[in-house]
Design a protein around this nucleic acid. Structure first.
Lengths: 121, 121
DNA sequence: GTGGAAATGAAAATCATTTTCATTTGTGGT
DNA sequence: ACCACAAATGAAAATGATTTTCATTTCCAC
């Protein structure tokens, strides 16, 4: 993936760093960019693989992609408006490590996400 | 919703309190219950509306339904062989609640999973 | 029983996402 | 420049969960 990747990334940035694949595609169409929906999906997926963007789920199950810094963090997501707060996970890191050690697991990683309804909703 | 509702609920219980609509449907089929997929969806939705079950999303976007009040647990999964250990998440519960409180979130839930390579692999 | 509202379910529609596959593009070797 | 081959692209079809439509069935209240 080389040609499309940067265009998709830049569109995602322009969208406020938070959009679904369909939205990125429609936005690029509107701006006269020539790209296929399939390629948008593939580019986003490769950006996820490269850990340049993050993916999470809206309430209706649609995947939304989000620019993401390199620092490992977790998310507090509003189920209603999709608003996202990056949070620190010091406690989690320790917990994950401890549990994994207890069970003899190596090369340990983890995922954690908190969701609820935010103040505004 | 009256006739199907209890049957769907009881099936969800039997499934361990955690399953997708399709899984509930297939389970009922296998057990010889006569019910339509549409009705399973409608029953689950009404159980969600009544706050008897909770809905959240798998990584692939499929909705999974969970009995409310079920003590939920987390998983330690081996990336290599898929072996899974159920673990307790006391620390996580507290962490999630604390963070959510700090940001004024209501109706809070969370997901967490630890993965790595197990002893055998 | 009778009539009408609510519940049911089969089939079709919807919608995001993935797959297939033929075409285009980029690259390295000559 | 030319050729060959691999990677990238995108249109169209396939997939799979979920929702909608609509005709039929069930359940009450009278």
């Amino acid at each position: 993936m080389t040609r499309s990747n940067p265009r998709v990334l830049s569109t995602l940035e322009r969208a406020g760093g938070f959009a679904s694949a369909q939205e990125v595609y429609r936005l690029m169409q509107r701006e006269g960019e020539s790209i296929g929906l399939t390629t948008v999906y593939r580019s986003l997926q490769s950006l996820v693989d490269d850990k340049i963007v993050d993916v999470l789920r809206r309430d209706d199950g649609e995947a939304v992609y989000r620019l993401c810094g390199e620092a490992h963090h977790h998310h507090l997501v509003c189920k209603s408006c999709g608003d996202t707060v990056e949070i620190e996970g010091g406690a989690i890191e320790k917990w994950a490590k401890k549990i994994a050690d207890e069970h003899g697991f190596r090369e340990v990683g983890h995922t954690a996400e908190i969701f609820g309804i935010c103040k505004k909703c």
